[in-house]
Design a protein around this nucleic acid. Structure first.
Length: 636
DNA sequence: TTAGGGTTAG
């Protein structure tokens, strides 16, 4: 323990200290201790505490605060408690010392950082003096702790009542606890009133608070009004756009940031990747990959990159990255498992899960959702049951609603609807709308109109304004050509102003996103697209294509039905993709709705007749079309 | 002595 002291052994140091140094302020032990508090190692500094006490010397508050910081960075909660005990013993935590406030504030912060919030609050309550730092520390601790945001706001109010004025630290902390637009507006008002709106910390928290409440315009305004700016403010706005689903907006901001001369860091790149993931922009995403190489230790960034490749349907890149990653956590493994499963490679997903069990971290609840997803989308009913039943025993993960939902999906997709219903009734909690929606989807797939009606009614009981339930119910009637029932359902939708979301597909070309809306021929290249589409129809007809008009869910004459089918958004995107196809590269399309059966058949035949790989991502999974076959095995 | 942004499913 004394190897960190200069030249002589600790025993010798101690002896000489006792003999020669009666003044505790110039004590050599103290000098050694102060050095260790600056540079560490923490263990060596902690080891000197009893000796300091024995020698009757007292470290000054600045040194104690340094030690506390060192402990937060490199130590454990018990190290923290040890320091706290020593501080109290030596009198630094007591009221008579003017400097005690600094140390107490640091201790409160330390307990909070170790997640010991109750200890932090107890210490705070006992403090005879409190300043803005003490209050801010507690407000920040509560705002950062899960589920204690209300308390953070109550502490802010109490602080104001005590006459303590919040500063930029307080505002940037409490903004993280903002859970309603009203509170946010009030805080924003106070920030402007006291003139703190240009502080970059306050600004980035403000942007983040608006974005977290889903107010993208508010976030954008807060960003546009900004006078001073730093990288984190840019990161906040880019992250906000990426999280709100506006991937194109996020990329545009990223470009502007670079134009403004800011260099991106890991945080920026992670958000940009998320934007690419959301929009399936593989070209931009791959370009970001080149910058990620610099940060090969950043696991968050690499997980984001891995997810981007999976969600862009580029499993080869994902696979290569996954094998190269030296560090992999439960998120990396879960991402890879879900990614493979969503891309129709369930067996490989389960193999990766086996590998994870033998050489990876312990699976968590999300890993298990991926595993069950793999089973349900490959029709592996027995495997699904096995994993569901054994997850608690093998990994200590108690099945939650999401896992039950996966099981309903597994049984429903496999056509075991009676078993699915039995399973729902035997669950030890009341089925929620998600479970009923899953069952409804399965009913639609297997054309079980009566059960679908029952599921839809259960959803509407729980969520009377649910559009999805009415749409799915009406689609089920339409599938069965029960036009009277379908019409009844549509009438309710019309009366309530429910509109079916139009089908949208998009495609990335030269880092630009081209959007196609079902039946909308307003794209600048529409003429060419229609020509190309006609050519493709001729080609695939030779390969046996016949329009499957049952996928048009309105009671129309069959020529009209064919017309509607012709201009489904994914067909427009396929034609556009073919016109701009690059040799050897697949066409990648993303959709907002599940792919329809007719487009699925069309895409299969185009992949065969044109010798082109087509990848379509819908909101749930991927379809890789090649040589007339789809990776989903026509089971989706 | 106190504060800000980023990853996984559905």
């Amino acid at each position: 323990m004394f190897k960190h002291l200069p030249s002589k052994s600790l025993a010798a140091t101690r002896r000489s200290c006792r003999c020669l140094h009666s003044d505790p302020h110039t004590h050599p032990l103290l000098a050694a201790f102060s050095r260790l508090c600056v540079d560490g190692p923490l263990r060596a500094a902690l080891a000197l505490l009893p000796d300091l006490a024995d020698a009757g010397v007292r470290a000054d508050p600045v040194t104690v605060c340094r030690l506390i910081k060192l402990c937060v960075r490199h130590g454990t909660a018990s190290d923290g408690r040890l320091i706290h005990r020593h501080v109290s013993d030596s009198g630094h935590g007591g009221a008579p010392f003017g400097s005690s406030l600094f140390v107490s504030n640091s201790l409160v912060s330390m307990y909070a950082k170790f997640g010991l919030l109750d200890d932090a609050l107890r210490l705070f309550d006992g403090m005879p003096q409190k300043n803005v730092v003490s209050w801010t520390t507690v407000v920040a601790a509560l705002a950062n702790a899960g589920g204690r945001k209300e308390e953070a706001l109550r502490f802010l109010v109490a602080m104001l009542r005590e006459g303590v004025a919040p500063n930029m630290y307080t505002f940037s902390s409490v903004l993280g606890a903002c859970s309603t637009p009203g509170v946010l507006a009030a805080l924003h008002g106070s920030i402007v009133k006291v003139g703190l709106e240009s502080d970059v910390f306050v600004r980035s928290s403000l942007i983040d608070a608006y974005m977290k409440l889903g107010d993208v315009d508010g976030g954008r305004r807060a960003f546009d009004e900004m006078v001073t700016c730093d990288l984190i403010v840019w990161n906040s706005i880019i992250a906000g756009f990426a999280q709100s689903g506006d991937g194109v907006g996020a990329i545009e901001l990223f470009m502007r940031m670079k134009e403004a001369g800011f260099l991106s860091n890991q945080g920026t790149l992670t958000s940009v990747l998320r934007a690419c993931t959301g929009m399936a922009m593989l070209e931009v995403g791959s370009q970001v990959h080149a910058h990620v190489v610099k940060y090969d230790e950043d696991l968050i960034l690499h997980n984001a990159l891995l997810d981007m490749y999976c969600k862009c349907g580029s499993l080869q890149d994902a696979d290569a990255l996954f094998s190269r990653m030296r560090q992999k956590d439960v998120i990396s493994w879960s991402t890879m498992i879900s990614g493979l499963a969503q891309n129709g490679r369930s067996i490989e997903a389960l193999k990766v899960f086996d590998l994870m069990k033998s050489e990876g971290p312990k699976p968590n609840r999300i890993t298990m959702i991926g595993v069950l997803f793999a089973c349900s989308h490959a029709g592996l009913v027995e495997d699904g049951w096995y994993y569901f039943r054994s997850m608690e025993k093998l990994f200590g993960i108690q099945p939650e609603r999401e896992h039950y939902n996966c099981m309903v999906d597994l049984l429903g997709r496999a056509g075991k609807l009676d078993e699915a219903v039995k399973f729902i009734h035997e669950m030890n909690f009341r089925p929620d709308s998600v479970i009923w929606r899953t069952l409804l989807g399965a009913c639609r797939m297997h054309k079980k109109a009566n059960l679908a009606a029952h599921a839809a009614k259960e959803i509407l009981k729980l969520e009377p304004d649910d559009q999805g339930a009415r749409i799915l119910l009406s689609n089920t009637y339409a599938d069965l050509r029960q036009w009277a029932d379908a019409e009844k359902s549509w009438k309710v939708m019309r009366d309530r102003g429910v509109k079916k979301e139009p089908g949208r597909s998009w495609i990335e070309l030269c880092k630009q996103v081209h959007l196609f809306i079902a039946g909308d021929l307003s794209h600048p290249y529409s003429e060419g697209i229609i020509q190309e589409l006609s050519r493709l129809f001729c080609r695939v007809t030779n390969f046996g294509y016949a329009p499957q008009t049952e996928f048009v869910l309105q009671d129309l004459a069959s020529e009209q039905k064919e017309d509607l089918l012709k201009y489904h958004s994914e067909k427009l995107a396929i034609a556009f993709g073919m016109m701009n196809a690059m040799e050897g590269k697949p066409i990648r399309i993303m959709k907002n709705l599940r792919i329809c059966g007719d487009c699925h058949a069309f895409a299969k035949l185009v992949s065969k007749s044109e010798g082109k790989v087509i990848i379509i991502r819908d909101p749930v999974r991927f379809h890789h079309f090649q040589d007339g076959v789809c990776s989903c095995g026509d089971y989706w």
